[in-house]
Every structure is written in C-alpha cells, then in structure tokens.
C-alpha cells in the first residue's frame, strides 16, 4: 500500500531563530512556523493545505519541496529521504518535484523571454540539446494554452493569468511527478482563476500528476482537493476528505473557519450560522501550552491547557486534534 504514497512527511519541524542577541551570539527566540507535521500524498491525487496567514502553510510547502531544510523530521519522495539529500542528489530530485508560486510577477525573470524562462530547468539539468529544448518548450506552451508567438515575449507583456500559465509550463518542463503549488490562483481575478484551476485539473488527469495545493481560499480547495489538511499555528488540526472536513467539521477551529467563508448565495445567508472568533491568532514565538487553539475556543476545558491533543481519529472517521471534537 505504501507504494501508493508518492510523498510523505514525518514529524516535520521548522523553527526560525529571531531576535538574535549580538552579545550572546545566539538567537533569543524561535518562531515555531511548522511544529510536528506528518502527512502523506497519494499518487495522482491532490492534497490541499489550508489555513490563515501565519499558520505555517507556505513554510510547509517549502519544506516539502526542500526549498528550505527542516529543523527536524524528514520528507520522503518516492521512497527517498530528501531532507538529508546532498546538493548533487537534490539536483536529481528536482526532476521529480517542482513548485508553482503565488506571484506570477515575481517568479519570472523580467530580462528573460518567456521561452527562455520555461526552458531554464532543462538547461540546468542538461538533459537536452538547444533545439530539443526549443521543441519541448513549444510543446509545453501548447500544453498550458500559450501560443508559439509568445516564445520571444517578455513577462511584462503578459497578463497575470498568462504569466501563471508560463510558471506552470516551467514547472512541467522536467516531467515531474509532484507539483507543490503555493497559492497558485490567489493573485488572479476570479474569471482567470477558473481558467487556471481547470488547466491544473486537466494536466493532473492527462499527466498523472500529484499536487500539494496550498491555499487560503476554502471554496477553491473544496473544488480541487482529494484530501484537505487544516493548519493552525504550525500544526495540522484536522485532516480528511473534503466531504468530511467541509460537510462535518469536527475541530472547533475548522468549524469557525468554514462558517466564516461568505457564500455567494444571498438566500442561503440567513440560514447559515456564522461563528465569529474573538481575538487574534497568538504569536508563534510563544504559542499557548497544550492545545494551541484553546485561547480562542468556545469549548475550552482545564485539560486543554495541559495536554496537547494528538491528531488521531476520535470516532469521526478522520483524524482531529481536539479533546472535545463534534
């Protein structure tokens, strides 16, 4: 069964030192951006990671793609531990896993033509001759819906949606098996968002890709994901199928998050009960003891401050990290 899992993370932690003291020559505080996350991605499926700003979802994405090194824990891609890989092994690993970023304005070199940018991974890996590369870039551009005449144009001549298409084409250049997409549509207008989401879905079914999809837009995630992980302050609080997580959320944070999403249907509004959370997310430098959500939770009890709830199935059919799930 484990052959089915293309990407796995075991107890991943990333702590960023902050507030360094010059005198002591060592950091005085750490931001616990990701603190003990384990998950697995099945071949050909989409795992979505949702949460609000500062919950650690983008740091997790970077860890999974090994753009940054974990403080502890490991990432296993296709049976190989990539968190300890040497730079030579890393280069090889990049053929298997690629990243699509949020900001299509920032991730393309403004001085390179679109064709050059899309072909960059091929040149780095030295897998093809120049003419083969050019041919492959044309192929990729067709795949993502760009026309051949775009090859020699520069990023500033493109709209946001077209730039994101170019970013996707570049990620596909080496025929990877896994794509980590960090907020790939949140910088785009809704009519363009739908175009890119449909493209990502089509590429997945045509090329058998597996996606890790990071997003804060819960409506988008529900549409595209096979499994959804909800993060809060560096930890996963609930994970399961979209039907389970959206249909019957068990963690109080997931419930509040779901109820906060505005529904574009004026007649449904009155029937829905909105849970308004009080206060702000605590600082990841000094997270609350026990359950990290307890400071804002309506169901809080004494045990929540002492005992950290584990992410296990408590009779809901999917894992929930709460002592008193619904």
């Amino acid at each position: 069964m484990s052959d089915d899992l293309i990407l796995q993370a075991f107890d991943l932690k990333k702590h960023f030192p902050t507030g360094a003291s010059k005198l002591l020559q060592r950091p005085t505080q750490v931001v616990q951006a990701v603190d003990g996350v384990s998950l697995s991605l099945r071949r050909g499926t989409t795992l979505a990671i949702v949460g609000e700003s500062g919950c650690g979802k983008s740091t997790l994405a970077r860890l999974l793609a090994r753009l940054i090194e974990p403080t502890s824990g490991s990432v296993v891609l296709n049976g190989v531990n990539i968190s300890t890989a040497s730079s030579k092994e890393l280069l090889k690993m990049r053929r298997e896993i690629q990243v699509v970023f949020q900001d299509p304005y920032a991730c393309l070199n403004p001085r390179h033509s679109i064709g050059q940018s899309i072909g960059t991974p091929i040149r780095i890996q030295k897998t093809m001759s120049r003419s083969e590369e050019r041919h492959r870039v044309f192929e990729l551009m067709e795949l993502v819906g760009l026309s051949h005449e775009h090859y020699n144009r520069f990023p500033h001549e493109f709209s946001g949606g077209q730039r994101q298409r170019a970013g996707i084409a570049r990620a596909l250049a080496l025929q990877p098996k896994v794509i980590v997409a960090d907020e790939p549509v949140s910088a785009l207008d809704v009519s363009i968002q739908a175009q890119i989401l449909n493209l990502l879905e089509k590429l997945q079914s045509d090329l058998g890709l597996s996606y890790v999809f990071i997003a804060h837009d819960l409506s988008v995630v529900r549409h595209i994901a096979d499994e959804v992980a909800v993060m809060y302050l560096g930890k996963i609080v609930e994970i399961g199928s979209p039907d389970a997580v959206y249909g019957a959320p068990a963690h109080p944070y997931t419930k509040a998050l779901m109820s906060a999403v505005p529904v574009p249907n004026p007649q449904a509004g009155a029937k829905r009960k909105r849970i308004i959370l009080t206060g702000d997310v605590p600082s990841p430098v000094n997270p609350p003891s026990g359950c990290r959500f307890r400071t804002r939770c309506a169901k809080v009890q004494d045990i929540c401050a002492v005992d950290e709830p584990l992410l296990i199935d408590r009779g809901q059919g999917h894992p929930v990290a709460c002592h008193f799930p619904d």
């Binding site: 968002q193 409506s219 988008v220 529900r222 549409h223 779901m258 249907n265 449904a268």
Partner: peptide, 25 residues
C-alpha cells in the same frame, strides 16, 4: 453570469466543472 459560473461556493456541487470566462479584459 460568467462571473457567477467562475466561482465555487461551499454549498455547490463539489465535482461540477468551473466555467471560466474565456480571454482577458
């Protein structure tokens, strides 16, 4: 109409396909 078909809502059918508006403004 195109705008409404481009968005997914939490109360719609999860598996229905999005219908984007073709082209750009």
């Amino acid at each position: 109409r195109g705008l409404l078909n481009s968005v997914k809502s939490l109360d719609s059918d999860r598996h229905s396909r999005l219908e984007p508006i073709p082209g750009i403004p």
